[in-house]
Design a protein around this nucleic acid. Structure first.
Length: 508
RNA sequence: GCCGGAGUAGCUCAGUCGGUUAGAGCAGGGGAAUCAUAAUCCCAAGGUCGGGGGUUCGAGUCCCUCCUCCGGCACCA
């Protein structure tokens, strides 16, 4: 066993231009589950999330609302900050890219990129809309080279611009991909990154001259950095000021895991490591690309179709744990999946209430009824012990690959096993016959211990419910080491189990 | 167009290196039990594994081809 390992995990930072939605909630929840699991292992976890507040869309929307960009960003960032406790996210820090400390650090890092000779002045040429005062991208332009917003003819113009020599990192990135096949996960996402790399890298513009809402370029204050270069660096800059008492950079950098959506794969798997290499900084260990949540009908969620799953509605009706559980249970992490309120309700009722919640209820009730609320001081059933043996290790191994869905499936198989065990042993029959007292003791202890172990393993997914149950069980330890059936009588005799009200009450 | 992924039970999916009768959950059907939130458990049923061809003693799995769906193909974040 080595000492405590540092584990730095991040979500993508949310673009503040719109309100928080299910997609944000999903990424936060999944990342939180992994972070909580790693803490259970005793690792030194730092979990970072935040908001991305620069760039033209923010400036535009602010203007449309009659606000200056900072005021608009402030207003919207609050909504994302408020989201964290609503989802029970255990982030250690929330970074905002308009934080002056972030901006200063961005300038430091990119100045080093510049000093290292990876930046040059060039001409950016593109289709320009005079009404938007902005260049348009090839694939958003309407037929006949017209502006997608104003539908007026665009003009071909050039702008003096600072360029990042991305092409120089073709070979280093190829080496990185070859040396670390898990740098991008799942494998499908790695294929995509490699395909992009294989098509040959071109230099990219690093700055914008016609925009002022961003981090100014230290060697040319008439420009601001292109928002992506500023945004990506949040992962690095945050460590330097998250704790005013200690610079966390050496302790946590490089990141162990960036969790992102598939729409920003290219930025995180190509631009980001290249930028870090250009600044002589170590690259992250892994980027995990999750899928998109689609509506129940398999189509994209959209307000106009009215098929949106509102996370706040789920929380209000079924609770935060229900939302967390449903999203990770229903959708294989790393793939797209279909979700909806009906499916969420179905899983809430059949799995959380009927299987796990009811297992807890019947176990506590039987201990109280047959053993006056005390856990018998006997060893649990060897068969159950054997069937739980290695479970925590398997779950850990799956989390090493960010497979929190499969881990949950393994845990859930044991939830079902315990319900089956109750039927096999029929404690209510054993209780009628004094000569069966030892068998009843063993049965009840096995159920108590099994339920406790499963709850420890479920803690990252449904922390509020687990905390409540473990308090009733008198066994609040959620360290992963506690996820093992105690062989010599658990907390025996000393526990006086109180009543347990339903963990997941039925809703209409 | 090029590249990649996918298509298995009514629904959502698993299926390792080619190897016994293709599995699970949910939904629907039948039954048992009464500790429990009427919650649980058991049983049965349900599949030309997208179509066609090939390799093989043997193909959901490998090869070819066709169909359908999805994604990527760079400076919107």
């Amino acid at each position: 066993m080595s000492g405590v390992m540092s584990y730095f995990i991040t979500t993508a930072i949310a673009y503040v231009n719109g309100p928080p939605h299910l997609g944000h909630a999903y990424e936060e929840i999944a990342t939180d589950v992994i972070a909580r699991h790693m803490r259970q292992r005793g690792e030194d976890v730092f979990f970072l999330t935040g908001t991305d507040e620069h760039g033209e869309p923010v400036a535009d929307t602010a203007k449309a609302h009659g606000l200056d960009p900072q005021a608009w960003a402030d207003q919207n960032a609050q909504r994302f900050i408020a989201l964290m406790p609503q989802l029970n996210i255990s982030n250690d820090f929330f970074i905002r890219t308009t934080d002056p400390r972030h901006k200063a650090k961005v300038q430091d890092v990119l100045q080093r990129v510049y000093d290292n000779g990876h930046v040059y002045q060039g001409l950016y040429e593109g289709w320009y809309c005079p009404r938007c005062a902005d260049f348009k991208v090839e694939n958003e332009i309407l037929d006949g080279n017209r502006c997608p917003i104003h539908e007026i003819a665009l003009t071909r113009e050039t702008e003096e611009n600072w360029f990042f020599r991305l092409s120089a990192f073709q070979a280093p990135l190829e080496e990185l991909f070859a040396a670390n096949r898990d740098f991008v996960m799942p494998a499908r996402a790695m294929n995509e990154a490699e395909a992009f790399l294989g098509s040959g890298l071109q230099d990219v513009s690093l700055s914008r001259g016609k925009l002022s809402w961003g981090v100014s370029v230290p060697w040319d204050p008439s420009h601001v950095f292109y928002v992506w270069f500023d945004a990506l660096l949040n992962y690095y800059t945050a460590l330097s000021f998250a704790n005013p008492e200690e610079d966390y950079t050496d302790r946590y950098w490089p990141a162990n895991l960036h969790v992102i959506g598939k729409d920003i794969l290219k930025f995180h798997t190509i631009f980001w490591p290249a930028m870090l290499m250009a600044a002589d900084l170590p690259v992250p260990q892994r980027v995990f690309v999750h899928g998109f949540l689609l509506a129940e009908d398999g189509r994209k969620m959209s307000k106009s179709l009215g098929n949106v799953l509102d996370p706040f509605e789920v929380i209000e009706q079924l609770g935060t744990d229900a939302l967390r559980f449903y999203l990770l249970r229903e959708v294989q992490f790393g793939q797209d999946g279909n979700v909806g309120l009906a499916g969420c309700r179905a899983r809430y009722e059949s799995e959380l209430a009927n299987e796990y919640g009811n297992l807890a209820s019947r176990t506590v009730a039987m201990l109280r009824r047959y053993r006056a609320g005390n856990v018998p001081a006997v060893a649990p059933d060897p068969e159950i012990v054997a069937q739980f043996d290695g479970l925590a290790e398997q779950v850990s191994a799956l989390f090493d690959r960010a497979d929190c869905t499969q881990a949950l499936e393994l845990i859930w198989q044991r939830v079902r096993r315990l319900n089956r065990y109750v039927e096999e042993r029929q404690p209510w029959q054993l209780a009628k016959d004094d000569s069966q007292a030892a068998a009843l003791d063993q049965t009840l202890t096995s159920l108590y211990e099994g339920l406790r172990v499963l709850s420890v393993l479920l803690d990252p997914y449904i922390p509020q419910s687990v905390e409540r149950l473990l308090a009733v069980l008198g066994a609040p330890d959620t360290a992963l080491g506690a996820a093992r059936l105690a062989a010599a009588g658990p907390l025996a005799g000393g526990v006086d189990l109180p009543e347990l009200s339903p963990l997941f009450p039925k809703r209409d």
